[in-house]
C-alpha cells in the first residue's frame, strides 16, 4: 500500500536528515516508528504527507509510492485527497473554530453527500466529542483536542493514517482510551496506520510491525512481538533491564557504547 524506497530527505538542500530509508505499510496494518529525539521519525511522516514542502525540505533521493502512485512531489492537500491523512504532532486544531466546525473541515475536500453520516460515525467513535460539539476547540483539554484532530482526519475518509505522537502530553488513562479507539477504527474501517511514538511500550502493543530509527537510518525492524523481545529494545526503549534489579551506574559507559547499532 505505502512504500518508501531508499528515501533521503534534505532540509534547505544541505541538511541531510533521513539517510536512505525503506519501509512498507500493508493494507490494514498498523506500523510503528520508534526512535529517540531527532532520529527523523516526524520527518518521514512529513515526507509522506508532503508537508515537507512547506518547510523547505525535499525528498532528494528515492521515492514514496502510495497504491502504485508516486506521491513525494505532491502538496499536502493532494496526498490528503489520495487518502493519506496526517495527524500532526502537537494537536494542530483550528483553535478558534468549534469542535463540529473542526470536524467539518476534514470533509471540505469531499462532496456534501456523506458528510452527515461521517460526522455521526466520528461521534460514535468519540462519544465525548458529541457532548462538546459547540464548544470552541481551543478551550478543550489536551485529550479532547487529540480526539478532535483524529476525528477530523477520519472525516477525510482516509485509507492511511499518519499519527505523530498521539500520546504527547496526555494523561495515561486517556492515552489508553485513544489507542483503544484507534484500534477499533483500524479493525472496523480497515484503515492502515503509521504511528510515530516516543512511548515505545504503547506503540509496540498497538502495532503489528515496527521500525526503529536512529540518526536517520533504520537500525531494526520486525513484527512488534519480536521487537519487544529484543534485548537492546528492552534496555533502551522499554527500560526493562533484568526486571526488578537495580541498575548500577558503574556500567553506564558500557551501555552507551553498546547502543551503537551499525
Amino acid at each position: 500500500m505505502l512504500q518508501l524506497v531508499n528515501v533521503e530527505v534534505r532540509y534547505h538542500e544541505v541538511i541531510l536528515v533521513i539517510r536512505g530509508i525503506s519501509l512498507e505499510v500493508q493494507p490494514g496494518q498498523i506500523v510503528s516508528l520508534l526512535g529517540a529525539n531527532g532520529a527523523g521519525k516526524t520527518t518521514i511522516l512529513k515526507a509522506i504527507s508532503g508537508i515537507l514542502h512547506h518547510e523547505d525540505g525535499k525528498v532528494s533521493e528515492g521515492f514514496v509510492n502510495f497504491q502504485g502512485r508516486r506521491i513525494d512531489k505532491l502538496e499536502p492537500y493532494a496526498t490528503a485527497e489520495a487518502g493519506i491523512l496526517h495527524v500532526m504532532e502537537g494537536r494542530r486544531i483550528f483553535e478558534h473554530l468549534s469542535v463540529e466546525e473542526n470536524l467539518l473541515t476534514g470533509a471540505i475536500m469531499h462532496g456534501n453527500g456523506k458528510t452527515h453520516s461521517d460526522l455521526e460515525k466520528v461521534y460514535t467513535y468519540f462519544p465525548k466529542l458529541a457532548s462538546v460539539r459547540k464548544r470552541t476547540a481551543g478551550y478543550l483539554s489536551g485529550g479532547e483536542q487529540q480526539m478532535v484532530v483524529i476525528g477530523r482526519a477520519l472525516m477525510g475518509r482516509p485509507k492511511l493514517f499518519l499519527l505523530d505522537e498521539p500520546s504527547l502530553g496526555i494523561a495515561p488513562l486517556l492515552i489508553k482510551e485513544i489507542f483503544d479507539i484507534l484500534n477499533a477504527i483500524n479493525r472496523d474501517e480497515g484503515i492502515s496506520m503509521l504511528v510515530v511514538e516516543q512511548n515505545a511500550r504503547i506503540a509496540l502493543d498497538f502495532s503489528n510491525y515496527g521500525y526503529v530509527l536512529e540518526n536517520g537510518r533504520i537500525v531494526l525492524d520486525g513484527p512488534s512481538d519480536k521487537i519487544k523481545q529484543n534485548e537492546d529494545i528492552k534496555e533502551f526503549y522499554l527500560g526493562l533491564s533484568e526486571l526488578g534489579s537495580r541498575r548500577s551506574y558503574k556500567d553506564f559507559k558500557h551501555y552507551s557504547r553498546r547502543k551503537r547499532w551499525l
Binding site: 504527507s49 508532503g50 508537508i51 512547506h54 502538496e75 499536502p76 492537500y77 490528503a80 485527497e81 491523512l85 496526517h86 500532526m88 494542530r92 486544531i93 483550528f94 473541515t105 476534514g106 471540505i108 475536500m109 477530523r152 482526519a153 472525516m155 477525510g156
Partner: peptide
C-alpha cells in the same frame, strides 16, 4: 499547514 493536511 494544518488546513493543507486535511485536504484544503
Amino acid at each position: 499547514i494544518a488546513a493543507g493536511s486535511v485536504g484544503i
